[in-house]
Simulated assay, not measured.
Amino acid sequence: MASSSVRPATVEDAAAIASLQLLVWQQAFAAVLPAAALATDPAVHAGSWAARIDAGGTVLLATEGAEAVGFAAVGADVDWHNLLDPVGEIEVLYVVPRWGRRGHGGRLLAAAAAALRVTGARTGRWWVPAADRATARFLIAAGWAEDGVRRKLDTGASPIVEQRWSGSLDLVAV
């Protein structure tokens, strides 16, 4: 079995991350995303990922052997409204479905939690499409829970309803 790891992404990884993003959208979110989003050229997103990484944004890349299989990005800002439990945000965490159930999601979640703890966050938040039951099962197994907050994203087609999940960054148990 090839070795698996998670490492900080580099600007040179931006094209691979954009390709992973589109692949996950096409394979896991085809029922909720508009057709135009699913047909986007990855190069459109690669520049944004490169700029984010170059500016010091936390983007993590999961690999199996030499192949990129997933990625995560965490927010730089911490919500300090509750000083005893400051909150950081996982903005995205994707593993290509073909590479699922091999621990990549757990390693990405653990690395994202570690990155958020460095910023001072103690709790994490993550918005997940309500229709994404696979990620919901993953988060439940990791000890996270829905916190009852929902939002609707206007896609220009059918809106995407997302649920907010919260979990302790100290107790990531995957």
Rank of each mutant, 00 (worst) to 15 (best):
S4N: 08
S5C: 10
S5T: 09
V6Y: 06
A9T: 03
A9I: 04
A9V: 04
D13Y: 08
A15H: 05
S19A: 12
Q21V: 08
Q27K: 15
A28P: 08
A30P: 10
V32E: 02
L33F: 15
L33C: 11
P34S: 12
A35Q: 15
A35E: 14
A36G: 08
L38Q: 12
D41M: 10
D41S: 11
V44S: 12
H45C: 13
A46R: 01
S48Q: 14
A50F: 04
A50L: 07
A51W: 03
G56E: 09
G65Y: 01
E67V: 11
G70Y: 00
A73Y: 02
A73I: 12
G75T: 12
G75R: 05
A76D: 15
D79S: 14
H81I: 14
N82I: 04
N82F: 06
L83A: 15
E89F: 05
E89Q: 13
I90M: 08
R98T: 14
G100Y: 00
R101E: 06
R102H: 06
G103T: 09
H104S: 13
H104A: 12
G105I: 03
G106Q: 11
L109V: 00
A110N: 04
A112W: 02
A113C: 03
A113E: 02
T119D: 08
A121G: 11
R122D: 05
R125Y: 05
V128K: 03
V128C: 07
P129F: 02
D132N: 15
A134N: 11
R137T: 10
R137H: 13
L139R: 02
I140A: 13
E146T: 14
E146M: 11
D147P: 00
R151H: 06
R151D: 00
K152F: 06
K152P: 02
L153S: 09
S158P: 00
S158F: 07
R164A: 07
S168K: 03
S168A: 07
L169N: 08
L169I: 04
D170A: 07
D170W: 03
A173I: 04
A173H: 09
